[in-house]
Design a protein around this nucleic acid. Sequence first.
DNA 1: GTCTATATTGGGATAGAC
DNA 2: GTCTATCCCAATATAGAC
Lengths: 224, 224
Amino acid sequence: MPPASASGASKRPRSAARKRNAADTKTRILDAAEALFIEQGFVATSLRAITSRAGVNLAAAHYHFGSKEGLLGAAFHRRVEPLNATRLEALDALLAEGHPPDARELMRAFLEPLAGVDPESPMPRLVGRLFGEPDAVARPLLEREFSEVAARFFAALREALPDQSPEVIRWRFYFVVGAMIHLLAFDKPPVPLEPPVDPADGIEQLIDFAVNGLDPHAESVRDV
Amino acid sequence: MPPASASGASKRPRSAARKRNAADTKTRILDAAEALFIEQGFVATSLRAITSRAGVNLAAAHYHFGSKEGLLGAAFHRRVEPLNATRLEALDALLAEGHPPDARELMRAFLEPLAGVDPESPMPRLVGRLFGEPDAVARPLLEREFSEVAARFFAALREALPDQSPEVIRWRFYFVVGAMIHLLAFDKPPVPLEPPVDPADGIEQLIDFAVNGLDPHAESVRDV
DNA sequence: GTCTATATTGGGATAGAC
DNA sequence: GTCTATCCCAATATAGAC
């Protein structure tokens, strides 16, 4: 049984120029898997549906990723790594300014990377989706991909809000994450409200809400 | 094919005292389904696992509920109906006072019923779980069970917060729901934080957070 | 590295005896 | 209303030719 989990080391034979329309098989599988995971969730999506959508053979998925879970891990990591990098970059920039960070700036560093440049980017919804999966599937992945970033932002929030108890900050950061997931998980929110009109506006609205919730006495900047 | 969707009209033959240990078959199936849906989610749970846990025959599930989806609908409705009733009762009581409702009281009416009397109640987590299911499964159910209550609370919030635009209220109520779901969905939150210590405290914390987020200029009552 | 073919398991649903 | 037995299908995964 060949590679099955070599993520970075691409080994396609440049020599013979093994053609494939544009993307190679591995990428085509990742793209299809990502789209279907977003639409239907992980458990509800079959490998057959993925490979058929990718226009590749069923066995190719196993060859490249070893298992369905391996494929999920690879698809997820591909999107989350740049997200984490952007978040930490923004956080480090804030901390480098010397003075204690501002809660609004922290929330912006945490949430704004989700808006991204490309409104068509599937990354946010992929992230949101995973939180709904059965714990056995989601928990190890979420732990692996997010725990470090979460811990660093939590620590920075404690500096930014010295008058709040750590417990309260913990709860409220937790709620911010919940609101974020809810925003990301659905194209059209299922309930209990009709979709707020402009989805691109969601992140900005969430930043406001988060800051108000975390630090109720700060002056509101963007309130209408 | 017999009933399959008669929810209320119980038709067990009282005549011959058809014994079953304590609960009748239908209830046993509902209990088992509920527990497994909470633990694993809907798609990941098989009818066989449900009936085996309930100690009843596989065919009994089909006899009583018609299909796996029918069973989910019944299990969900059994818990949501009392929740909705409690919420609307509290809302009506507030509105009956004559003056415009207060945002904190509204959030309390909306969220406090989730705390319930019984800390072991599976209802909150069942509600939280359903939001993570594939849209095809969850959306019709959520729509059916929650749209009316959501609309009524949204209308009341508009009265309570006349200085906020309806769009902002819509977004923020949406975020409150997201934070609520996140709180309900997990026994132990998966990420990105360790579980805040006392889960019974979660609803109270969420009420504070919600009110601050919705109405940043109101005086904070319970802030530590 | 990609394919065909297949092994193997488990799913939802139903027929029909009791 | 409850059971046994079974149908039928789809799933993950693998073996082995090319």
